[in-house]
Each structure stands twice: as structure tokens, then as C-alpha cells.
Amino acid sequence: MNRQTRSAAMWTCVLAGMALFTSAELVHTQTAQPAWMWSPPLTGPAPGEIQVLPVQGHVHVIVGAGANITVQAGPEGILMVDTGLGSMSDKVLAALKTISTRPLRYIVNTTEFEDHVGGNAPIADTGEIVPFREPNYTAGPQGALDITKASVISYYTLFHRLAGPTGKTPKIPELGWPDNTFSIPQKRLYFNDEPVVITHTPSNTDGNSIVLFRRSDVVSVGDLIDLTGYPMIDLAAGGSVNDMIESLNALIDVTVPAKNAAGGTMVVPGHGRIADHAEVVYYRDMITIIRDRVEDMIKKGMTLDQIRAARPTREWDRRYGRDTGPWTTAMFVEAVYQSLRQ
């Protein structure tokens, strides 16, 4: 097993575990509640179940299928952002029918992580695309267009990693591979009477994207924001803490609060609750401060072990940190450290 394959296998395990970890019934999972804490129960979907929540305009979110799935539906059909875990696809398809009975036309992948793309193949197979190029045109890199499935859109590096090198086992079945990639900063559609702006936002990997539904005023951001934990930074897939911060700043640029730093543009994170401008700014602040601290410690000549012991994440650990599981605080600090050393 070469380094790249090992890395891919490790990340598959990490992300599948993470998806199970974050689909628990109660969202408040990071630390055990202290004895004095009092709270009425706040429920999410039970393990193995999903929940559909309206966001605003044409947009809903499906929670509990791995990563959050954003759904835009209207007269022209359905556009999904991410597809969740493959094991949840039947439930996701059933949930889609409660939102719209129109055909599934597009899937946009925000990141290559298993809990975002695992359902690509079974879900894309249920859709049908209105041809956006000559179906028999085979000269392009993606070959002929299969119009009997939904079209899968992603940044081109995400496609490369899902398909894998020639002769190697791809991450997901070919049916779920992106067939509609882009390599410039934005890909734009006009679908269901609104502009849909897909922007390349390198962060967790070099292939991340966010999707802005301009009339609904909703932006689906994938794991650029994970309100249940520290963000995964996959260095082997081109992830970078500095890119993440820049992409968070770019996200702030497109989230316009309605009044007093709240409401307005709504944000669907990769994991966790529906958010808005304020959560994006808090998250940006946190990642930036952690980056600045680790950078300062590196300049002082501290080793990774010394930096971990100094706990540069310390005031957020009770909220976002994990000591066990597939993505721990120690792994996050190491990713920030290695990212800054590159």
C-alpha cells in the first residue's frame, strides 16, 4: 500500500467514524455536562434517522445522514449539496420526496470526505439531467454525458481524488464521480429561478467549494465550518489552515446580516446547526487565533509536543475539542502545525 493509498484509507476510516460520531441524537456531544448544568432537552435526529429542516427561500437541510445535505427545490427540479453517507441514501431519497417530487438534476460536492460524497452513486442514479452540453460530445476530459442520472458538480481536484489514479480502487463507484467539474474560481448556474454560485474555497482540502443560493440568500459551506468540532484539515489532500482562514474571510464577504449581526444570509455548515454571519465570524476568529498562537510558538522554536502541551486551543476545547474518536484536538493542532511548517 503506497503512501497515498494509506492516507486515503485512513481518511475514509476517520470520516466514516466522524460521521457516526456526529449523527448522535443530541447535538451537544463534546463534553459531559457538569452536574450543576440545567437545560431542557434539545433534540436532533435519533442515531440512524434523519431530519428535514427548512432554511429559507427554496432551501432545506437534511440533518443526520453524515454531513448536512442542503437541498434547493423548485419547478426545474432538485439541486443537492452533498449526499451524506452511502448507508443513509435510502432515507435521504425518502426525505427528498417530502421536499419535492420534481426530478433530481444536480449534486454539488463541497468536499471529498466520505460523509459528503458517500451517497453520490445511489442518489445520482435516481436523477436525470437536462443536457448542458452535447451528450455525445466525447472530446472533453469527462467524455460523453449520461443524461439518465443527476449531474455531479465539483472542483476538478475533488474529481481526481474520488476517481483515484488509474488502476487503483476509486473512493466511490464511477456512477457517483463528478461529471461536471470546474477549474476556475467559480461555476455559476441559474436554477429554480435563482443564481447558484459555486465558489472554489480551498480549506479542508484543495478541492472544497461553497454554494451560494443568491435569491434564497443561503450559502452551503461544507466542512469549511463544522459547528460540532474543530475543522478537519487533510494535508495530504492539499488542506491548509491559511487557506481555510482566507476562505472563511471570503465567506464573511458573502454573508450579509439582516440586522445587528444576525439573520440575513443563512449558512448551512458541514455539521451542526443552521447558522448565520455571526457563527461564521466566531469560527473565523477562533481558527485565526489558534493559527496565530501556533505560528508564534513555532517562531519560538517549540516542538509539536511542546505546542500540544501549551494547549493553543484551550478555551475552545470544551466546546469543539475531542480527546477520543477519529478527529481529536491533538490531531487538529498537529494539522495546524504541519500546515504552517509547509
Binding site: L26, V27, H28, P40, P41, L42, T43, G44, Q51, L53, V61, V63, N260, A262, G263, M266, G272, R273, I274, A275, D276, E279
Partner: peptide, 11 residues
């Protein structure tokens, strides 16, 4: 009833 946990939080 209270809204689900994953609905927006406000000030």
C-alpha cells in the same frame, strides 16, 4: 415545543 437543536440560534 422547543425547536430542534439544529435550528438557528439568535441573540
Amino acid at each position: 415545543a422547543r425547536p430542534p437543536a439544529n435550528t438557528p440560534h439568535t441573540w
